[in-house]
């Protein structure tokens, strides 16, 4: 039985495998990284480790948050590195029944689909399971952008 660390983007409830989560922390000051991929929000100093923060809303093609509240960090361990996912609100750790699992519906937008592993049908709502590996698989190859700058 898998346990999931859940969190919210607006009304959307998502979760990642709890074993992948290193820690959950409040909003941290960030240093922006020019030229990086749009969904990279900046760099955080996590006790001496430099962590790249990814705006999950941007990554999943959701509109920016309208809430006044600062976003929270879910720090995911990925090999030697750590990456933080910026989310609106942190939820509980839950252990849904395998029977309630289903592949993602076809109607989910293409851009987000590759990052959604599936859906758990909980009592009152749906839990989208995030594939963290694919979510953080972003490259900031800006060589094409350089050409654009040069041309402009």
């Amino acid at each position: 039985m898998k346990q999931f660390c859940t969190f919210y983007l607006g009304d959307l409830m998502l979760g990642v495998d709890v074993l992948e989560v290193q820690e959950v922390i409040l909003y941290q000051d960030m240093t922006q990284v020019p030229l990086a991929h749009d969904s990279i929000k900046g760099l955080i100093n996590l006790r001496g480790q430099i962590v790249t923060a990814i705006d999950l809303r941007e990554r999943l093609n959701l509109p920016p948050s309208t809430s006044e509240e600062e976003q929270k960090n879910i720090v995911i361990q990925s090999g030697e590195e750590a990456v933080s996912l910026l989310v609106d609100e942190i939820g509980d750790v839950i252990e849904p029944s395998e029977d309630d699992f289903e592949d993602p519906p076809e109607t989910i937008p293409e851009a987000a689909k590759e990052m959604i592993e599936g859906v758990y049908k909980l009592d009152k709502r749906l839990l989208l399971v995030l594939n963290s590996e694919r979510t953080i698989n972003i490259t900031s190859d800006t060589s094409s952008n350089w050409l654009q700058t040069a041309a402009s």
Partner: peptide
């Protein structure tokens, strides 16, 4: 400190460091 793989492709940066006030600088 090295940059994470999400940022490796940017030619302008060699790494990052933590400044005296605890903030990150490229």
């Amino acid at each position: 400190k090295p940059l994470s793989k999400q940022l490796k492709g940017i030619p302008c940066f060699a790494g990052a460091t933590i400044m005296g006030d605890g903030k990150v600088a490229l």
